[in-house]
Simulated assay, not measured.
Amino acid sequence: MQTLELARIYERQGYYEDAFEIYSFLCMQKTDNQESFNEISAGLKRMEKKIKKKGHEVQGAYPEENISRLCEKWLTLMVLKHRFDKFKKVKSRLLQR
């Protein structure tokens, strides 16, 4: 659910990278509404400035450029899930004794 409203919420809450990703996604979508397109473009520019001000690199305006970062996140989550599952098995064995 990548919507303009969600991007605005992330922006207000200070989640600039997440807002930037949504604005980028929306920018790639075809829209006939010029007002929405202008707001999306302005949002992208604001997020770029805020992210750079925080000292972070902007990941890129296109989802393809974020694939390696997303894969890394996915792998990290998979490892954590595996560890958690092993922990649950050990815990259940200890409780059975």
Rank of each mutant, 00 (worst) to 15 (best):
M1H: 12
M1A: 14
T3E: 01
T3Y: 04
T3W: 05
L4V: 04
E5L: 14
L6I: 13
L6Y: 08
R8Q: 14
Y10P: 02
Y10R: 10
R12D: 07
R12M: 09
R12L: 11
Q13F: 08
Q13W: 06
G14E: 06
Y16I: 08
Y16T: 08
D18A: 12
A19M: 02
F20I: 02
F20C: 12
F20W: 14
E21N: 09
E21W: 02
E21Y: 04
I22W: 00
I22S: 04
I22C: 04
Y23T: 03
Y23S: 02
S24T: 03
S24I: 04
S24N: 05
S24F: 04
S24P: 01
L26E: 08
C27V: 01
C27Q: 07
M28A: 14
M28L: 12
M28I: 03
K30D: 10
T31M: 04
D32Y: 10
N33Y: 05
N33K: 11
N33V: 07
Q34Y: 04
E35W: 06
S36H: 11
S36Q: 14
F37H: 04
F37S: 10
F37W: 07
F37P: 00
N38W: 00
N38K: 15
E39S: 15
S41R: 13
S41L: 12
S41N: 13
A42I: 06
A42T: 14
A42H: 11
G43Y: 09
L44N: 01
L44S: 01
K45D: 13
K45Q: 15
K45L: 15
R46M: 14
R46H: 13
M47F: 07
M47H: 09
M47V: 05
K49W: 00
K50S: 06
K50D: 03
K52N: 13
K53W: 11
K53D: 13
K53A: 13
K53F: 07
K54S: 09
K54P: 00
K54E: 10
H56C: 10
E57H: 01
E57M: 11
V58E: 01
Q59M: 14
G60Y: 04
G60R: 10
Y62D: 05
Y62H: 13
Y62M: 06
Y62P: 00
Y62I: 05
P63I: 08
P63R: 14
E65V: 08
E65D: 11
E65M: 14
N66Y: 04
N66R: 15
N66L: 15
S68I: 08
S68Q: 10
R69P: 00
L70R: 11
C71E: 11
C71T: 03
E72S: 13
K73R: 12
K73N: 03
W74K: 12
L75P: 00
L75Y: 09
T76V: 01
T76Q: 06
T76G: 03
L77K: 10
M78I: 11
M78H: 04
V79W: 08
V79K: 13
L80I: 05
L80D: 08
L80F: 05
K81S: 07
H82F: 06
H82P: 02
R83T: 07
K86Y: 02
F87M: 12
K88V: 14
K89P: 00
K89W: 06
K89E: 15
K89L: 15
V90Q: 15
V90F: 13
K91V: 07
S92T: 12
S92W: 01
R93C: 09
L94N: 14
L94R: 15
L94T: 06
Q96F: 02
Q96S: 15
Q96N: 10
Q96E: 07
Q96C: 06
R97I: 12
